[in-house]
Each structure stands twice: as structure tokens, then as C-alpha cells.
């Protein structure tokens, strides 16, 4: 018996160690990401001055006359993400309010998974859809639209991140205690008044968290813009002309054979570092808001 128990204890220790190392792998992943990005970015800044990276208005590392200003890529990223947000936030929030405050449980059980399919469609498929369906459609309305532009991928990206907003916002609204609604109805308020004056303010931090997560997803989205927005880094806010985002640039370089150690190779890490820092800030804010929300109600 005693021997058995000893073996059992040993096994417990072994299992514990194994499980612990699996959980620690996530820390290693983050260290790996930061390490790899930092290493090549430091190399990059040995050749390109900091000032040029943040102030030069041209990004032409693949040309003979090389400029390394991140601003045009940032502008492209900002432009496409803004369009996506303008589409996803209102539609997503309205869908969430409908699902949470108006729809019957049966409708909700059908509609919510249907919306979530939108988030499950591979992004390369959305790229195809943007380039060959949405752009030609928009061209009929706006004849001056280029074949590659920021508008069409922006709209399609908005549809893609819509379920993120609607699902997470709906979860936040569902977590608002029913007593609050009942009190509002008891005062004679309509469902609209209850939704906008009671439920939305109570779920505000949860909804804000879903919005910010959607922004982060839009900034990091790659394939839609790589396919449909062109490959021309341009410092503009005009949605009708070809542009390039940070992510699309990384894809563009990766398609060619760029040997390690060249300045072109280092640029994708400098661009990747910029992207990582941006999304890290948004993710952090989103996580903080959602924790705050959970503390309020759960």
C-alpha cells in the first residue's frame, strides 16, 4: 500500500510539472515574438535613423531610391480600419441590441450562429469577394474608383468583424441583471428606452471592450487588403485610390525571395514591430475594460 501511494505521489508531481510547462509555453511564445521582432528591428535601426522612420512621407524600400517612412503604411492601415469600424460598429451594435432585447430566444439561437459564420469565413475568401464582387459593384456608383482601393476592402472587413462586435456586445448586454430591465419596464419605458437608457449604459465597458477588440482585429487583418487594396504605399486619406497597409506590405515582401540580413528583410520586422505595438495597446485596453465590466456584474 505504502509503495503504491509513493508511486501515486510521484506521478502527481510529474503530471504537475508537465501541465505547468504547457501553460508556461504561452509566456515563451510572447517572449519569442518580442525577441524576434526586437532583434531584427534593432538591426533595422542601425541602418535607418529613427527620425526618418517616423517622419519621412515615403515608403520605398523595394526601389533603388530607398525611403523608410512608416507614415504611408500607417495611413493606409488607419484608412481601411476606419472604414471597417464605421461599418462594423453601428451594424454590430444594432444586431446585438436586436438579439439581446427584442429577439425571442428561438430566433437568437438561429441568428447568432448565422452571424458567427461571417467570422469563420477564411479571410482570403473575403479578399476574393472584395476584389471581384464589391469593387465592381461600387464602381457602378462611384465611376472614379480604382480597381484597387481602400473602400471596398474596408467595407468587407467591416462585415467580417461585425460578429465580433455583435456577439461580444450581446454577451455583455445579456449579463446585465434582469431586475434593471424590469424596473425600467415598470416605469412604463419602452424596449427602446430600456435598451438605450438602462441596458447600454450598464453594459458600456463590455461593449467598449468589444469595439476596441474589433479595432485591433481590423488593424491586423491581412489577406483582404493584400488582395483588394493594391500595393502602393501612399500618404492619403482618399479611399478611392490604391494604398498599402502594414500587413499587406509584409505579405508583398514575403512573396518575393528576400534573403535574411538584407535591409528589405529587416523592414518587414520593423513594420511588424509597429503593428505589434499598435495591436498590443488596443488589446490591453480591451482586456482591461472587459475585466472591469466583469467586476461590475459578476
Amino acid at each position: 500500500m505504502r509503495h503504491e501511494a509513493g508511486k501515486e505521489r510521484l506521478r502527481e508531481k510529474g503530471v504537475n510539472l508537465f501541465l505547468f510547462s504547457c501553460a508556461s509555453l504561452s509566456i515563451l511564445t510572447t517572449l519569442g515574438i518580442v525577441g524576434v521582432l526586437l532583434f531584427e528591428t534593432v538591426e533595422f535601426f542601425r541602418e535607418v535613423p529613427f527620425i526618418q522612420f517616423f517622419t519621412d512621407t515615403q515608403w520605398t524600400p523595394l526601389f533603388v531610391d530607398k525611403h523608410f517612412g512608416i507614415l504611408p503604411l500607417l495611413a493606409g492601415t488607419f484608412l481601411v480600419s476606419s472604414i471597417a469600424i464605421v461599418v462594423a460598429l453601428p451594424l454590430g451594435l444594432l444586431a446585438a441590441i436586436y438579439l439581446s432585447e427584442y429577439a425571442s430566444p428561438r430566433t437568437r439561437e438561429v441568428v447568432k450562429p448565422l452571424l458567427e459564420i461571417l467570422a469563420g469565413v477564411p479571410t482570403v475568401v473575403y479578399g476574393y469577394f472584395a476584389l471581384l464582387f464589391v469593387t465592381p459593384l461600387l464602381k457602378k456608383i462611384i465611376p472614379s474608383l480604382s480597381g484597387f482601393n481602400a473602400l471596398s476592402p474596408g467595407i468587407v472587413m467591416g462585415i467580417m468583424i461585425l460578429p465580433l462586435v455583435s456577439s461580444l456586445s450581446e454577451d455583455a448586454m445579456a449579463a446585465v441583471p434582469n431586475e434593471l430591465r424590469e424596473a425600467s419596464y415598470g416605469m412604463g419605458a419602452t424596449r427602446f428606452q430600456t435598451a438605450t437608457k438602462v441596458v447600454l449604459p450598464s453594459a458600456a465597458s463590455g461593449i467598449a471592450s468589444s469595439f476596441i477588440l474589433a479595432v485591433s482585429r481590423a488593424i491586423g487583418e491581412t489577406m483582404i487588403v493584400a488582395i483588394a487594396s493594391g500595393q502602393q504605399p501612399r500618404l492619403t486619406l482618399n479611399p478611392l485610390v490604391p494604398i498599402e497597409t502594414i500587413t499587406a506590405y509584409i505579405v508583398q515582401v514575403s512573396l518575393g525571395d528576400t534573403p535574411a540580413g538584407t535591409i528589405e528583410y529587416k523592414t518587414i520586422y520593423a513594420a511588424g514591430m509597429t503593428l505589434f505595438v499598435l495591436t498590443f495597446l488596443f488589446n490591453g485596453l480591451s482586456i482591461w475594460l472587459s475585466r472591469k465590466f466583469r467586476e461590475e456584474y459578476q
Binding site: 524576434v36 491586423g220 491581412t222 500587413t247 509584409i250 503593428l275 505589434f276 495591436t279 488589446n283 480591451s286
Partner: peptide
């Protein structure tokens, strides 16, 4: 929520 392309890098 880290963009997938960062995992590529």
C-alpha cells in the same frame, strides 16, 4: 488577439 501575420514573423 495578436494578428496572425505576427505569428508568421
Amino acid at each position: 488577439s495578436v494578428p496572425s501575420i505576427i505569428y508568421g514573423l
